[in-house]
Every structure is written in C-alpha cells, then in structure tokens.
Simulated scan of single mutants.
Amino acid sequence: MDYRRTYRSAAIVFADLVSRIPLDRLDGPGLGEWTLRDLLGHTVSSALRQVPTVLADPAPVLVIPAAEAYFGMARTAPPAMVAAAHQASTEDARKTGAALGDQPATVVSGFIGQATAALASAADEDLVATAAGGMRVRDWLPTRTFELVVHASDAAAAAGVPVEFDFETIAESAALAARIAAATGSGLPALRALTGRGPLPSGFSVV
C-alpha cells in the first residue's frame, strides 16, 4: 500500500465529512467528555496540523521501529504520564476546536494543504522526532492516517452523518489495529473475534 496516498485519501474524506456536519451539532456530544467540536479539534491537531512540524524535525536515532510500536508505548507508560498526556490532549482539542470557528471545513482544508505539501518533501526513510521517539516517515505517517480514519468514524457517528473510506485506506488502518493488538498481547482474542469464534472483552481497545 502507498502510505502517502492513503494519508491523503483519509484527509480528503475527513474534510468532506466536516463540510457535511451541521454547525448546530458541533457543541453536542462527540467522544467521551469531548464535544463534537473538541473531537474535530483533536483530529486536526493530531493528524494534520502537527505533520509539517514533525516532518521538519529530524531525529538523531531510530527509537520506534514500527507503527504498532508507537501505540504500544502508551500501554507501558507510567499512569501519571498517561493522565498528563490525556489532560494536555483535551486542552489542545478544545483550543483547536474553538479555532475552527464557523467555517471548520475551510480551516481543515488549509491544514491538509500544509500537511501534504510537507509530505511531498519528506523521504520514506527520513528519521523524524515524534512524541514516542525517532521514527521513519514511512512508519509514522500511517499512525496519522489511523487517527484520521478512527476519529472521522467517531465524528460521523456523533453527527449522524455517513462516512466511507476506500479499500486501501480502511485496510491499512484495520491492519494496523490488528498489529497493535498482536504487539500488545491481544492478537489471538482479536483474531478469534474477527473470525466469529468469540467476543472481545467489554471495553476492549487497542489504543
């Protein structure tokens, strides 16, 4: 799969979704404690706005060798660190969501343009500094596609608006979810659930 194409595809689908969400739904429920506006803000921040910044920040050494290892690190981080990261993420989501104003689709499109322009200048093997440590561009960007796909589906469900991704984009993110499950010790339960051989535990998540 072409990770650059799937990222662009996911971003375009997200922008289209945002353009179809009624403005009067933005202050309603989104995900957990977040409003829908907060959720969109988090998605913009985590999957679009930070891309040019990360791609412009080289890392001296490779620390995280694969996309699944990026998410797996959160499972081993100290609880206090996870709680602090969650609080910072919530504050950023609300700030970014507010900055989307009453034309969120226009703002989102601007961030997509900046992200894809930065990506065009990055090489697959470039090492960049991420929140988890040094990663190859080709391993880090699929984590941003994953954010776009998962949170676009969250936003679509919250807004009652349909969303659909092409085969390669959804396949890449679904495969990454399976690899995260395997990397964190839940591969077999996930496989059995996907093949109709048993339910997943209540509250199961790979992230």
Rank of each mutant, 00 (worst) to 15 (best):
M1A: 11
I12A: 10
I21D: 02
P22M: 01
D24C: 14
P29G: 09
P29F: 06
G30I: 10
G30A: 13
L36H: 08
L48M: 11
L55H: 04
L55P: 01
D57G: 03
A59E: 06
L62Y: 02
V63P: 00
I64N: 04
A67D: 05
A69W: 00
Y70D: 02
A74P: 00
A74M: 10
A74K: 02
A77D: 10
A77V: 08
P78R: 01
M81C: 07
M81G: 15
V82S: 04
H86F: 11
S89Q: 14
E91D: 15
E91S: 15
A93F: 06
L100E: 02
D102A: 13
Q103W: 05
V108T: 14
A120I: 10
S121Q: 13
A122M: 14
D124P: 13
D124E: 15
L127S: 05
V128G: 02
A129P: 04
T130R: 01
A131H: 10
R138C: 11
W140V: 06
R144S: 03
F146C: 03
V150M: 11
V150N: 01
S153C: 11
A155Q: 00
A156W: 01
A156Q: 01
A156G: 01
A159W: 02
P162Q: 03
P162W: 08
E164L: 12
F167N: 07
A174S: 14
L176V: 10
L176A: 07
A178K: 03
R179K: 12
A181K: 00
S186L: 06
P189A: 12
A193K: 00
